[in-house]
């Protein structure tokens, strides 16, 4: 692998004496699709929050395209090509879907004076066209004018992905994109994410649905108690004893004998 797009080394974070992330190393290459899996409380979302800058790490490096993100303010990291979706949907309820998606493009909207222009004027016109196009690609064109709060759960989940894409990220972090979606919606999301990845966006996904992970990601890293306990293709991971033990809470032998 050439220099990875995302390069995490020795990442540590503890809250009140509890080590949540313990010396994590993780590399994601340009154009790769990597899953971060593990049981509840393994520290997956914390890793995302550290990459994102919501928390400051106690130790370690997070490099994106060679740039160390740690000293960079959370607000500025999106300019380095980092965007994410959230585990519990964080759309702005009383704004329309189109407006939510336009929020994602904030970093491309221009300086303070451009903030004073109505959304469809100046550079905003092109951004609005881009937002409409991306919504249409995701099959959400009909909902562009609806308020985000009024949308069905599965739709809101997909709007979050489109919003993150509007930042034109190099690396897209998706926190449990499947949670709460039915089989049909999962299929639509999978197709959508394949399209996104083919467009050159690198994906790092936290997900519990191994079927979905197998369909999307070429590689998975397993986290347990803040440590990486296994890494490989989704199929290899599924056979790893340490992984089975982490998920079941006891050794696979005993499970086999039971």
């Amino acid at each position: 692998m050439s220099a990875p797009l995302l390069d995490i080394r020795g990442l540590r974070k503890s809250f009140g004496g509890l080590d949540v992330v313990r010396g994590l190393d993780l590399q994601v290459g340009q154009g790769e699709r990597v899953a971060l899996i593990g049981p509840n409380g393994a520290g997956k979302t914390t890793v995302f929050n550290l990459i994102n800058g919501y928390y400051a790490p106690d130790a370690g490096e997070i490099r994106l395209g060679g740039v160390d993100l740690v000293p960079i303010a959370p607000r500025r990291r999106i300019r380095h090509g980092l965007a994410r979706s959230f585990q519990n949907i964080r759309l702005i309820g009383h704004l329309t879907v189109l407006e939510n998606v336009l929020l994602g493009a904030h970093v491309h909207a221009g300086g303070p004076l451009a903030m004073l222009l109505p959304l469809g004027l100046g550079r905003g016109r092109r951004l609005r066209e881009e937002a409409r196009a991306r919504l249409a690609e995701a099959g959400l064109a009909d909902h562009a004018g609806s308020l985000a709060a009024g949308l069905a759960y599965g739709l809101r989940k997909r709007v979050e992905v489109v919003r993150a894409l509007m930042a034109r990220p190099r690396l897209l972090l998706l926190d449990e994109p499947c949670a709460g979606l039915n089989t049909q919606e999962r299929g639509a999301l999978l197709a959508e994410l394949h399209r996104v990845a083919e467009g050159g966006v690198t994906l790092l996904v936290v997900e519990h649905d191994m079927h979905f992970v197998g369909g999307l990601c070429g590689r998975a890293a397993v986290l347990n108690f803040g440590e990486k306990i296994a890494e490989g293709t989704p199929a290899e991971i599924a056979r790893e004893p340490a992984v089975i033990e982490a998920y079941l809470g006891h050794a696979p032998e005993r499970y086999a004998h039971a």
Binding site: N52, R77, L95, L119, R163
Partner: peptide, 18 residues
């Protein structure tokens, strides 16, 4: 638009670069 976004979710709005 940004004002409304900040009112509802300051943290997320900031993560989008506002």
């Amino acid at each position: 638009m940004n004002l409304h976004a900040i009112e509802q979710d300051e943290t997320v709005t900031a993560l989008f670069g506002v």
